[in-house]
Simulated assay, not measured.
Amino acid sequence: MAFHEVRFPDTLSVGSTGGPMRRTEIVTLANGFEKRNTNWAESRRSYDAGIGVSSLDDLQEVVAFFEARRGQLHAFRWKDWLDYKSCAPSEEVSSGDQRIGTGDGSTYLFQLTKSYEAAVNPYVRTIAKPVTGTTRVAVDGVEQVAAADFVVADSTGEISFIVPPAAGQAITAGFEFDVPVRFDTDRIVWSLTALQAGEIPSIPVVEVRV
């Protein structure tokens, strides 16, 4: 298995359904109280790629992509149209969108993350697949220059500074990103009659850890 640094066609993913899921175990006690526990520290996203298929050409494009990934074997990039920026979907990415660390005078590497803010218990998500050319970085509010001040590893989401930020300096970043996924099936079933009647095939994809 491998990760292919290619994105599922945007024209087909734009109409998809899906979103984050978690796995919570709930035990109801005899007194009516509950015990709740989760084995997942992070959420996992799933989608249905079949929603965007509306023609034979679309279906052929999906099948070609599916065959190139060898079904479930190889993972790939997916654009989640609801959640693909460090900011709100309607806003422009800026270097101050997300705080990703604090300088200590010796650390060169910082991982891109996105914080889902809440009044209580915010969730911080690791971003491993930023979109090439979209990452902006600032140190203490001063925007840095790509290649001259820092380098982005688009396959891992790591920021590498040429000179480590000084102690106490806030490191912030803005970016677009993809979700690493794989097909959640080894079989695509379709019917020409059904497609002509407006019925769509189900083509599930699921997030993977990279």
Rank of each mutant, 00 (worst) to 15 (best):
A128Q: 05
R136M: 10
T193F: 01
P20H: 07
T132A: 11
F65C: 08
L112F: 11
S115E: 14
A64T: 08
E5T: 07
S90F: 14
S115T: 15
H74G: 09
R70F: 11
V137G: 06
V152Y: 04
A153M: 05
S16F: 03
R136T: 03
D97R: 02
I203K: 01
A88Y: 13
P204D: 11
R209W: 11
G105I: 12
Q72G: 02
R36Q: 13
D104N: 14
E5H: 15
A138T: 04
E143G: 09
G52R: 04
D57K: 13
I51W: 01
F65R: 09
E61H: 06
F177M: 10
E158K: 08
P204N: 09
H4W: 02
R7S: 15
D83H: 11
S86C: 07
Y47V: 04
V14M: 10
V145K: 14
G133K: 08
K129P: 00
W81N: 03
V181P: 00
G103D: 08
S106A: 13
T38C: 04
G32Y: 06
V120M: 12
A118N: 14
F110L: 13
Q144K: 12
G15T: 00
Q144H: 03
S155T: 15
G101W: 10
P164G: 07
S155G: 05
Q98E: 05
A166C: 04
N121S: 10
F161N: 03
R77D: 14
A118Y: 10
Y47P: 03
G18H: 08
F33V: 07
A148P: 00
V189A: 12
T107A: 15
Y123A: 08
F175E: 08
E199G: 00
L73D: 07
E67G: 01
V205N: 02
T185W: 10
W190Y: 15
Y123F: 15
V179C: 10
I171F: 04
V152G: 04
E34V: 13
S55P: 02
R182H: 01
P180C: 09
P204A: 10
T193R: 05
Y116N: 13
V179D: 00
N121T: 04
R182S: 12
T126F: 01
T126E: 13
A68H: 10
G105H: 10
P201V: 15
R45P: 00
W190L: 09
Q111I: 05
G103T: 09
E42A: 14
G157V: 03
V179W: 06
Y123Q: 09
L82G: 14
G174V: 07
M21N: 08
F3G: 02
A146M: 01
F150Y: 15
I100R: 07
D58G: 09
M1H: 05
Y84M: 08
E117W: 04
T132I: 10
S55F: 03
V63P: 00
D178Q: 07
